[in-house]
Design a protein around this nucleic acid. Structure first.
Length: 600
RNA sequence: GGGGUGGUAGUUAAGUUGGUUAUAACGCCGGCCUGUCACGCCGGAGGCCGCGGGUUCAAGUCCCGUCCACCCCGCCA
């Protein structure tokens, strides 16, 4: 029990005091950020969540205290009582980098709440410690001002969301995390039920069905800031548990969703970052995004757009190049990206790009440099074979001028797009084409309803099976599923997918047709999604919604390079918690209680 | 599941064609210093070179395996 704390409640934070407070007796609490010992003067930077204040121990104020301050060390947690003094009149100089830089505290009383072991790394912003060490000492990592700012931002994003949606008549409603396992989509974490042996819950991968049930129940406008769980492999922007801002609305169409979202996102950016976003966001169709950028989440802050050469070369029968001809005969795609002359690449760099292509699963990197007034190619394996006609056509399609480098990818469209999109972002970084402090917000619209699965030769839902097809596609759901478009949309910021949603099937007959097209039998529909279909039969309203990845949004807004920097206790890439050591084995007694045994 | 990068002092890194006692910076410990704030000066401690095999007279360095972290592909309706 600290007498000091009882008798001396904190009067200010380490960010509060300035020249206005001269002569005041104050009490500050915090951590020792740094020590500077000058023999007859000992300076300490005291840090709390709010800032830093310099405190000074002087022998003439209290000789015993000055002597005792000698034992203080970095990251000790202390409280001090003292007088606010002017640094200048004390013979020092102000520190313009600190808000409290004009003053210092002459310490009269010192309380050491707790000593600290030597910290594993320095508690400062420009840290170069490897991430595994930061995660292993996460508490110390979270002490760093940079990290504290990230979590303050996260808090502000959540509060701005609640304020905006509350004002807009949304109800914040909760849905279960322990849910019925439903097939399809992300792999679920499975939770054994003790009370129902041999039965299992799934952790909700999203509240999708429940929010639709809310709409049927007449809740009209729902939102939730909710944890979702997906047992899939991790990435820099993917964690097994993550947070969504989940929204659903009744009696609306796409335009209502766009309007609501634009209002919400603008409000968040305005109140958190004081950034005014465009009044309505750009829109680009999925087809156009894939064609121009090879990605359904393009970063359109820079150019380096793709050119689809497939139609051009089809007309020219491959233009004399064997590789082109072979690709076309197999129904493949040929795409190019033109790197302007201004962005010079050395031979080594181009060969490194080829390594990158191969690491992404591509076969190689075709290239050609335009020369001789667009009548020749150099440094190209295609130069010997290509007909003059095709060469010109390609140059023209790519808008290639002399000295420009054309990079080619050919083969299956999915791979071509992925590889070329990877090259595009790599080159944008290489040539610093990405403007800082800009917010590129766009809608991706008109997604295909289904994706073709090559392995099983079946169609699977591109978004999820509750997504409504465009009305004009309902008739051809079965006859031509590949051509059907959905009423789904994604929100992309700076090349990150931060949100996605759709208008749902509220007509049980349409829903049944979609399931049918997906090859889900009537019996399966009832056993797996019966509760939803049942609800739809009780007067379901037209409805739709959207969900935002809160972590990704915060990552982008904080300028962080990984989602882990805005999640307090994230998992490592192999899905473990390096701080607590989770997951851990459990003992046989626990297993027995659950009616489980190991086979291995 | 596949591909890549990395692992050397508390931290970040250097370490040559394999060859004396494995370096540096920061941090840490001790001393000096009355105006610092990346304080300064003097001195010192600190190493299973991720782990396990192998090659060799000799391995941080070469080979094989393995673990961990991160990035990418697959996966993420």
């Amino acid at each position: 029990m600290s007498q000091f704390l009882n008798q001396n409640p904190r009067t200010h934070t380490c960010h509060d005091l300035n020249i206005q407070n001269l002569g005041q007796k104050v009490v500050l609490m915090g951590w020792v950020q740094s020590l500077r010992d000058h023999g007859g003067r000992r300076f300490i930077d005291l840090r709390d969540r709010y800032g830093i204040t310099q405190v000074v121990f002087k022998p003439e104020t209290n000789a015993k205290l000055h002597a005792r301050s000698h034992e203080l060390r970095s990251e000790w947690c202390i409280g001090i009582k003292g007088l606010v003094e002017d640094r200048k009149s004390n013979g020092g100089s102000p520190n313009p980098r600190l808000k409290t830089g004009e003053i210092e505290i002459d310490v009269q009383e010192l309380e050491i709440f707790n000593r600290s072991q030597t910290p594993p790394f320095l508690i400062e912003n420009q840290i170069d410690t490897h991430e595994d060490k930061r995660l292993a000492h996460r508490v110390m990592d979270l002490r760093r001002p940079e990290m504290q700012a990230n979590f303050k931002l996260r808090h502000q994003v959540m509060q701005a969301t609640r304020r905006y949606l509350d004002k807009d008549q949304f109800l914040e409603l909760e849905t279960p995390a322990l849910v019925k396992y439903t097939p399809g989509g992300a792999r679920n974490f499975i939770v054994p039920s003790r009370l129902q042996p041999k039965s299992f819950f799934a952790l909700a991968e999203s509240p999708q069905i429940f929010k639709q049930l809310f709409m049927v129940a007449g809740m009209d406008r729902y939102f939730q800031i909710v944890k979702c769980f997906r047992d899939e492999d991790l990435r820099g922007d993917r964690q097994p548990e993550f947070t969504q801002i989940d929204i659903e609305m009744s009696f609306i169409n796409e335009e209502d969703i766009y309007k609501m979202t634009e209002g919400l996102v603008k409000s968040i950016f305005d109140s958190v970052l004081n950034v005014k976003l465009a009044s309505s966001f750009k829109r680009i169709t999925h087809t156009e995004a894939m064609s121009r950028y090879g990605s359904d989440k393009p970063d359109t802050r820079f150019g380096l757009e793709h050119t689809d050469l497939t139609p051009v070369l089809k007309d020219l029968n491959g233009g004399g190049v064997t590789l082109f001809e072979q690709t076309l005969s197999k129904g493949g795609m040929i795409k190019a990206m033109c790197i302007p002359k201004a962005h010079e690449l050395s031979r080594t760099e181009v060969s490194k790009l080829e390594d990158l292509v191969k690491s992404m699963g591509g076969l190689g990197l075709g290239r050609a440099k335009a020369a001789e007034n667009g009548s020749a190619w150099t440094q190209s394996p295609f130069a010997k074979q290509i007909t003059p006609e095709a060469l010109k056509a390609i140059n023209q399609a790519c808008k290639a001028n002399d000295g420009d480098l054309i990079l080619f990818q050919m083969g299956k469209p999915k791979l071509v797009n992925m590889v070329l999109a990877g090259l595009r972002t790599r080159l944008a970084e290489r040539f610093k084409l990405i403007p800082k402090n800009t917010w590129d917000v766009l809608w991706i619209t008109d997604f295909p309803l289904f994706e073709h699965d090559e392995d099983t030769n079946t169609y699977i839902a591109a978004h999820h099976p509750f997504t409504s097809p465009r009305p004009e596609d309902i008739e051809r759901l079965k006859s031509n599923p590949g051509a059907c478009k959905s009423r789904a949309y994604d929100l992309v910021i700076n090349g990150n997918e931060v949100g996605g949603g759709s208008i749902r099937n509220y007509d049980p007959e349409v829903q049944a047709k979609v399931f049918e097209a997906l090859g889900v039998s009537a019996e399966e529909q009832e056993s797996k999604f019966g509760f939803l279909l049942e609800a739809l039969r009780f007067g379901a309203p037209p409805h739709g919604g959207i969900a935002f990845g809160l972590d990704r949004l915060c990552m982008i807004m904080a300028g962080a390079s990984s989602i882990r920097d805005v999640i307090a206790f994230p998992k490592s890439q192999r899905g473990t918690d390096l701080f607590t050591g989770a997951p851990t084995p459990i003992d046989n007694k626990q297993l027995l209680e659950l009616g489980l045994t190991f086979r291995i």
